[in-house]
Computed example of a mutant assay.
Amino acid sequence: MSKSSFQGTTRRGFLAGTAALIGAPAFATQPLPVQEVEVSQGYDPLRPPPVPEPPVRHNISSFQAKHWQPYFSNLHNGAILVDTQSRALHFWSEDYESHMLFPSSVPLSDEMTRRGRTSVVRKVKGPSWSPTPSMKKRNPEWPDYIPPGPDNPLGTHALYLGWKYYRIHGTHDTRKIGRRSSNGCIGLYNEHIAKLFERAKVGTQVLLI
Rank of each mutant, 00 (worst) to 15 (best):
1 M>D: 10
1 M>H: 12
3 K>G: 10
4 S>I: 04
4 S>C: 00
5 S>Q: 15
5 S>V: 05
12 R>T: 15
13 G>P: 02
15 L>M: 14
15 L>N: 15
18 T>P: 03
19 A>Y: 13
19 A>H: 14
20 A>E: 13
23 G>E: 11
23 G>A: 07
24 A>V: 03
25 P>Q: 11
26 A>N: 04
27 F>V: 10
27 F>H: 09
28 A>K: 03
29 T>D: 11
29 T>N: 12
29 T>Q: 13
29 T>E: 13
35 Q>I: 06
36 E>W: 11
37 V>F: 03
39 V>L: 12
39 V>P: 03
40 S>A: 05
44 D>R: 02
46 L>F: 12
47 R>E: 15
49 P>M: 02
49 P>E: 05
50 P>Q: 06
51 V>D: 10
56 V>E: 11
57 R>Y: 08
58 H>K: 10
59 N>R: 07
60 I>G: 14
60 I>Q: 13
60 I>T: 14
62 S>A: 12
63 F>W: 12
64 Q>G: 06
70 P>C: 05
70 P>T: 05
71 Y>T: 03
72 F>M: 07
72 F>N: 09
74 N>K: 06
74 N>R: 03
74 N>V: 00
74 N>H: 12
74 N>E: 11
74 N>T: 07
77 N>R: 15
79 A>V: 00
79 A>P: 07
80 I>R: 05
81 L>T: 04
83 D>M: 03
84 T>W: 04
85 Q>I: 08
85 Q>F: 06
88 A>T: 15
91 F>Q: 01
92 W>L: 03
96 Y>D: 13
97 E>F: 01
99 H>Y: 15
100 M>V: 02
101 L>T: 11
101 L>P: 00
102 F>D: 04
102 F>N: 01
103 P>H: 01
104 S>Y: 00
106 V>P: 15
106 V>D: 02
107 P>E: 02
110 D>W: 05
110 D>E: 14
112 M>C: 00
115 R>H: 06
118 T>I: 04
119 S>T: 08
120 V>I: 13
123 K>P: 09
123 K>I: 02
127 P>Q: 14
128 S>F: 14
128 S>Q: 13
129 W>S: 11
131 P>V: 06
131 P>N: 10
132 T>D: 09
133 P>H: 08
135 M>T: 10
136 K>W: 09
137 K>V: 11
138 R>H: 08
140 P>Q: 14
141 E>Y: 01
142 W>L: 10
142 W>H: 11
143 P>T: 00
146 I>Y: 09
147 P>G: 15
149 G>L: 04
149 G>W: 06
150 P>G: 00
150 P>F: 00
151 D>G: 06
152 N>M: 03
154 L>S: 04
154 L>D: 09
154 L>R: 05
156 T>E: 12
156 T>P: 06
159 L>R: 06
160 Y>I: 10
162 G>H: 08
162 G>Y: 09
162 G>D: 13
165 Y>T: 15
166 Y>G: 01
169 H>T: 02
170 G>M: 01
171 T>N: 05
172 H>T: 08
175 R>I: 07
176 K>N: 12
181 S>D: 07
181 S>V: 02
182 S>W: 06
182 S>E: 07
184 G>H: 12
185 C>H: 08
186 I>T: 15
187 G>A: 10
188 L>Q: 05
191 E>V: 00
193 I>L: 01
193 I>Y: 07
194 A>G: 09
196 L>P: 07
196 L>Y: 03
196 L>F: 04
197 F>H: 10
201 K>N: 12
202 V>E: 14
205 Q>A: 06
206 V>W: 03
207 L>F: 11
